[in-house]
Design a protein around this nucleic acid. Structure first.
Lengths: 250, 250
DNA sequence: CGGAATTTGTTCGTATGTATT
DNA sequence: AAATACATACGAACAAATTCC
């Protein structure tokens, strides 16, 4: 039965009582030691119980912990796998924070916006290098789709997200891309709490996308920075407005 | 017994089987609806079971999920409380990612470093405004402590962390401060995997702290940006070196 | 200081829903 | 369509930690 390659033998048979790392920590160690990566299967719950010398419930609670950190993914009725190691926990945490109207959703939104801007500025140089003297039909097409959908009175959240995702694709910094994506997600989730933007603001924002792309293709860092500022400007105004309104109520 | 103010009555009595939001989601909703904030007590597990109409195991798994996101904090034998809503999950996730030597710890480290730099640059303007024409004895004292400990051949991780924490205190953007703190933590946790820095590099880094502070007090944004670059430069070289070494092995 | 009361931590056994083959 | 493997859920009992008297 248990072959020489059975990875479960790497785990301590008997759980030392009271001392030692938590079950979740031991499972993380198992993933590390086995050199597993996203998508690789983990032992079943029963096997983990056996290997770690703890009960089913403890294993399940540990798996819940790791699942919420996207360190493992559970497919009901099938098995448990190494997760995507994404920034999903950051996103859900910030969204929850924003949903607590305690000191206003707007404060969270304003802070997220500032971080988005800082990150956009921080990668400007590298992005300009990557895009100089290129043409990018897909990105232009996305901008055109935004215009069309806006003319038709529809939202273009999907296109906006795809634009920003594609724009950063040349960066080899995975973390930056994930962070920008995470804050975009928090942002678009929280922003509906704001006042309805004017159609002029919306058009302003759409054209800013075009300007960002044009500046990048021209290799013009200055123009890119200006376009980024233009892109966030209407939103920034809305937030400051909302903060003032909330301040006057108090 | 159950008074008019019993907040548990806000929760649905009977859990509809199979459908509806998860238990964790319902607890989050409870926190929202009651307007609770960090440190406020939550109902006991038994009360949550009763209120949500689910078993204790389910409530416990939900609490584990929320605990790992720092949405609740559990004190053994005492009670459950609303958590600090910190970026702890981001930190532990990134540290775990870095600990998977899969494509090298250095890649994660390099990416974290780039983000730290981008954030530092992104808040430069605001920081200069806050520090112009001030004197900051505490921060200077921290730099001096770093020098002393370094002369004594000791580490000064604590002082370094405190310096960066205090430096950003004027920012009213909580999220930025937390992000910088989070990446600092990931950074200092992962950095021991690098080659031992030369004592010249260490002194270089310590003096960079001094230069950053001096530039801020002088209101000189340019000098501040240069000092930030100087601060990270030795580390950046170490990482590039490690990446080259790892690349040659493959 | 000691012990009772409260609350979370862990375990076991059992039954049920779900996905894959 | 049936069988199998697996995750989900429940409830009861006991252990450990903390507080309060």
């Amino acid at each position: 039965m248990a072959t020489v390659h059975d990875p479960l033998h790497m785990l301590p048979r008997q759980r030392r009582r009271q001392t030692g790392p938590s079950t979740a920590e031991e499972i993380k160690g198992f993933i590390r030691d086995q050199g597993l990566g996203p998508g690789d299967p983990l032992p079943t719950e029963a096997e983990l119980c056996e290997a770690l010398g703890v009960s089913r419930s403890s294993v399940r609670e540990a798996i819940r912990t790791l699942e919420s950190l996207d360190i493992v993914t559970v497919r009901h009725g099938y098995g448990t796998y190494v997760g995507g190691l994404s920034l999903a926990p950051l996103v859900s945490g910030l969204i929850f924070r924003g949903s607590l109207n305690r000191d206003g959703t707007f404060r969270t939104l304003r802070e997220v916006l500032q971080v988005r801007i800082a990150l956009d500025l921080g990668v400007a140089e590298e992005l300009v290098e990557a895009y100089r003297n290129t043409t990018n039909d897909e990105l232009r097409a996305l901008v055109e789709q935004m215009r069309e959908r806006n003319r038709a009175g529809e939202f273009f959240t999907e296109q906006d997200g795809e634009f920003h995702r594609q724009l950063l694709r040349p960066l080899d910094n995975t973390l930056v891309r994930q962070l920008v994506g995470a804050f975009w997600e928090v942002h678009t989730t929280c922003v509906p709490m704001l006042r309805i933007p004017t159609s002029s603001d919306i058009e302003h924002t759409i054209e800013a996308h075009d300007h960002m792309l044009t500046a990048l293709e021209a290799g013009d860092t200055e123009a890119y920075l200006a376009a980024v500022a233009q892109h966030y400007e209407p939103l920034q105004r809305s937030i400051e407005q909302a903060l003032r309104d909330a301040g006057q109520q108090a």
